[in-house]
């Protein structure tokens, strides 16, 4: 009798707990992480394609003829700086300081824009030299891999601007904090992918 009472007590408690979970949206972070893992698989496939096709120059230019390592180093610096400034924004968010958080988000956006600008300049330079995606298997896979990363950064920037508008209109409500945490994961994840890109595409390309 006593045992039955105990069990029923627990059951009610868990039901209430589960209900609370669904409302607070605390499973969002795990769901977003799983999305990032699926995105990771997309990039893994593109890396595999680059690994297979990266040596097929079709008598065209090789990485050594095309890549400009100081420019790539500058690009990497921009993305790394945008990662740390987003971290500062999250720290300000945790303290509830809206203004300084927005300021760090603006700085993050500017670094992101600088990254995209440098990448587009590089692409334009390559295409101007005749190293278009149609030129060889190496260039097709190069533009697909690096372009997909750049597209992710572009959408991350759109998301960043949308969230800044959201925060300025509604403040740091729970939903906005959750969204900012999701973008934080997305942004740092793109930085992790870029480590793979500059190592396997640019640095290894110069060694070949």
């Amino acid at each position: 009798m006593d045992l039955a009472h105990d069990v029923s007590d627990d059951t009610i408690f868990h039901l209430e707990d589960d209900h609370g979970h669904a409302e607070s949206g605390s499973s969002t972070m795990l769901g977003f992480w799983i999305y990032l893992m699926s995105d990771c698989l997309i990039f893994a496939m593109l890396f595999a394609v680059y690994g297979v096709l990266g040596g097929n120059y079709a008598a065209g230019p090789a990485p050594k003829d095309l890549f400009d390592l100081p420019l790539v180093a500058l690009n990497t610096t921009m993305l790394l700086l945008s990662s740390i400034t987003y971290g500062f924004a999250i720290l300000e968010m945790a303290k509830g300081r809206v203004r300084s958080m927005q300021m760090w988000l603006v700085i993050t956006g500017l670094f992101g824009l600088a990254f995209l600008g440098i990448e587009l300049y590089e692409f334009a330079h390559l295409i101007h030299e005749g190293a278009t995606p149609q030129r060889s298997g190496f260039l097709s896979s190069f533009f697909t891999l690096v372009g997909t990363h750049g597209l992710h950064v572009t959408f991350g920037l759109v998301w960043l601007v949308v969230l800044m508008v959201q925060v300025s209109r509604h403040g740091l409500i729970a939903a906005n904090q959750r969204r900012l945490m999701c973008l934080s994961m997305f942004w740092h994840f793109l930085d992790v992918i870029w480590i793979g890109v500059f190592t396997f595409v640019y640095l290894m390309g110069m060694l070949r």
């Binding site: 990662s83 971290g87 500062f88 999250i90 720290l91």
Partner: peptide, 11 residues
């Protein structure tokens, strides 16, 4: 949310 120390160490 991480800490300032953690972010700076990572950076």
């Amino acid at each position: 949310h991480g800490t300032l120390r953690g972010y700076l160490t990572g950076f």
